[in-house]
Nucleic acid binder design. Sequence first.
DNA 1: ACCTGAACACCGTTCAAGT
DNA 2: ACCTGAACACCGTTCAAGT
Lengths: 186, 186
Amino acid sequence: MRADAKKNYEHILAVANVVVTKHGANASLRDIARKAGVGLGTLYRHFPTRAALLDALLRTGFDELTAKARELETASSPDDALVSWLRDVVTFTGNYQGVVAAMTAAMEDTESALHASCVTLRTAGTRLLTRTQAEGLARTDMNGDDLFSLAAALAWLGDQPSSAPRAEHLFRIIASAILSNRASGD
Amino acid sequence: MRADAKKNYEHILAVANVVVTKHGANASLRDIARKAGVGLGTLYRHFPTRAALLDALLRTGFDELTAKARELETASSPDDALVSWLRDVVTFTGNYQGVVAAMTAAMEDTESALHASCVTLRTAGTRLLTRTQAEGLARTDMNGDDLFSLAAALAWLGDQPSSAPRAEHLFRIIASAILSNRASGD
DNA sequence: ACCTGAACACCGTTCAAGT
DNA sequence: ACCTGAACACCGTTCAAGT
């Protein structure tokens, strides 16, 4: 990558971080290009899709969450590790309003630039869940997809002004559901 | 209302039902007007906001859900009534992709044309929840807002292709969390 | 009273033309 | 190689002009 191109890339990303933090994952790309003082085509050259931009924006955070999962795997009891990590995931994605919808969409679309990151995240969660289940501390009728879905739902609730005030409480309700070690109960 | 106006009103609503069912709650209003063979201003005259259109579209269903809640209150055991009603709410809103976001927004915005319907729905749910709690069959650290949030989250999950296949399973997980009669668990 | 559609200010996306 | 911004096909919303 040429030096000037790299500079543009970095600058667009920095501006995007500000704009997306403020206006959410559906922020105007035109607006980002404008604020970055760059042509609209330049933004598209570096980030051919919105998912590509979001992935570049979130990858550092995703990597940190993956690393965190590994630490927790040895440092904490299984149930504490799972809940603590889940909280981190929800908190992080909650920083970017609307990003969780992009993530659930990317989960299904293997062509999405966000796909790999989401799969990595799900894998990390699955490991923590499996470990907790093995100790009989989490319900066994759940898999990593369910965990990802519940995390996404909690993040989405955090985006809704009507639910946000009780987000922590809703988190605890769902966390307790995961940790109840019953078989598929109805 | 003049006869021709009424006819337009009804026809727009019928077309909107088709379009919103197919393309979701954010469907193009222009498209609806076009397909209804009506000027764009006519649509805005009858439905000044998107929320007003959605409310007109959903009110029948909301009324049915409210009536259903009353029936269940006398016909079923508290826990069965609550879960059965919750499932109906989730199923109904799940028919219109994206409508649940409009509902959570309307919950906070007293000026929204959807506000009253959402409050009515929440009230119906609160009654079923309170009754279940009184019998010691639902966790007591929850209120009607939480129930509404959890219903919304489940409906939202149903809209996400990555979660939809396990929507029923996720429903059961959350339903079981509501029905676990423990105090505020950590 | 009610309807129409042009007008305005925005989008996302593409691509010829420039350096 | 990379950048620019006009062009295209869409939006939501308003409102003067028509019937």
